[in-house]
Design a protein around this nucleic acid. Structure first.
Lengths: 328, 328
DNA sequence: GTTGTTTGTGTTAGCGTTAACGCACACAAT
DNA sequence: ATTGTGTGCGTTAACGCTAACACAAACAAC
């Protein structure tokens, strides 16, 4: 018990005893067992972080942001990668309960994650949703403004003279895909361009190969579009590969814009015109919301933070002929 | 106890009892407490993963690989980001002991991580080093062949006619930096080119801004080099930015090669000539080594796996004028 | 009918902490 | 001298699980 008091810095220990304990701790290499501590305290200092794809630069930065605020608060991150798979998501969420994580940050697979999330609610684990909402599930939330962002991107294409604008999207059960389609639709509508259903290509945006194939088929059409709005960065990557496959040059033969930057790619060579979301900030804010809720568990009202995206014009949309001062 | 037997699938339970327990579990939403289980079993199913920079695409893919094999084995990953900071690394390692992680995968900061790692050895936590060795510390290890890879890259620059070849490197206490310098030195030596110490620029490769500034100074010299070998992908990124700052075009005014690909960047737009290491495989192999050691704790000999890198010629070295079929 | 063996279930103790309380001692106030 | 107030440290029990053993009942073997 006295050891516990020393380790936890309780003041009710005499300096002499404290010193003796500290010496013993140092000599024996004693490290307190946080499992045992978690059992008694009902607090583990672990938070779960669940994302569909760590390797997607958007989520990578998000993870990085979460880790940063967690570390600052003395918390640790259990990282889970669902690969967009609902079952894996369910298992991971149950695991978070089993490990008695203090809370969970999750970029859910889609609206169908709702039943998975109820497990958490049952066990009273605080949750913060990131990037994607889940219809019918209320909780703290950090998201971007997809409708406005998409509108802006497609408006830009229209201003450049494009009228045959396709969208590579993903399942409408994903809130961001829904919202971005809405922005696309709004932009076309405002310009008096009818939506061509053949130009709205559903795909699996988590997998660039899938996008690549879907886009190739689109580009092989006799009435192929002159511009493409990709629902996110990895979809844009698939489009770029498909264009190369088809011998088309971006932006000369095909304009391309998308949501989410691929920052290292853009810094290396400023190619993609994007709505860049502050991915790391998504993570830090979400982390703070969760930590805050851990400190004030009584707080009842759910909070929503909407982060603005930044419109960055580079080469792929065709607005500029080449990147300033760059190769090749 | 009977519940425990049902949950763990022990055969010594009657079907009737098993059914009753399962029904109760479902109805109550009971989820076994893994902290308590960890306490009795001395096994948590958690492995620690410690890297210097999650956001570096190399480590991101590595993390992804580790998570994949861990998940397959029913293990979970505690993710730690040291930002190349020795103290943070020490704290994290101690935390891994505190959480009674079953083992640790670590890409250490440098040779100076040795004392940090001894904490683990004391507590008999299995360790697998990834990417970087630590002088004087024996353990399982997964690494690339940096000497050969660097030699190949610099040989390539020499074949293209370059003689004024600089290297952006990092602290020689980092094994990969040491090895890659060795390859650079070997290549120049074999070509009879003396090493110009002014061309060997030490930098902090974890921070592209730092590299950028160091490279700008290098490029402002009257005898600026015609080619640069960057110790890794993020260093190359700093070089690319510095070149843009100085109004130089890559590869026309400056050739650039580096270790480690930035895969999404390269797929979007094939720019960098690199030695591409199989980053995800680093993670999966390391994970397998650790899991194997968890199953066979008696195993004594440490194992070393060396993974080959792939030499990929793209635009930045100047060997080709433009990427096949791509823009702009 | 005695002696094993197997099967299903219960009991006890212990994993390493800490919350909550207990108690001796010192020191001050009445 | 009595009462109160801290201070420093120890004891007990509990967190939720499982290893190890206990034991009754059923079933087989001699």
């Amino acid at each position: 018990m006295t050891v516990s008091r020393v380790v936890n810095g309780s003041p009710r220990v005499s300096p002499a005893t404290r010193k003796r304990v500290e010496e013993a701790v140092a000599e024996l290499g004693y490290v307190p067992n946080r499992l045992a501590r978690g059992l008694t305290q009902r607090r583990t200092g672990v938070i779960g972080l669940i994302v569909p794809d760590i390797a997607n630069p958007f989520y990578t930065l998000l993870v990085s942001g979460v880790e940063k605020v967690a570390a600052r608060a003395g918390c640790h991150v259990l990282l889970c990668n669902t690969h967009g798979d609902l079952e894996r998501e369910r298992d991971y969420l149950e695991d978070m309960v089993a490990f008695r994580a203090d809370g969970v940050l999750i970029a859910p697979v889609s609206d169908r994650s709702k039943s998975n999330l109820r497990t958490l609610a049952q066990h009273k684990l605080p949750v913060v949703l990131i990037d994607r909402t889940v219809q019918g599930f209320e909780s703290d939330l950090v998201q971007g403004d997809s409708v406005t962002g998409a509108r802006r991107l497609v408006d830009h294409l229209i201003e450049l003279g494009h009228r045959d604008i396709a969208m590579i999207t993903e399942d409408p059960s994903v809130s961001t895909a829904r919202d971005r389609y809405q922005g696309y639709d709004d932009a076309l509508g405002a310009a008096g361009i009818p939506v061509n259903p053949e130009y709205v290509v559903p795909s699996n945006a988590i997998d660039p190969e899938h996008v690549r194939n879907a886009t190739r088929r689109l580009l092989q059409r006799p009435d192929r579009p002159s511009a493409i709005f990709a629902v996110n960065n990895l979809a844009a990557l698939g489009v770029a590969e498909a264009a190369r496959d088809e011998g088309l040059t971006i932006p000369d033969d095909l304009a391309l814009v998308c949501f989410d930057d691929i920052d290292y790619a853009s810094r290396l060579y400023p190619f993609l015109t994007v709505m860049a979301q502050p991915a790391e900030t998504f993570g830090t804010i979400a982390g703070q919301l969760l930590l805050d809720r851990l400190e004030h568990p009584q707080g009842n009202r759910t909070r929503t933070v909407v982060l603005p995206a930044e419109f960055i014009v580079r080469v792929s949309c065709g607005a500029t002929r080449r990147p300033a001062g760059a190769a090749p």
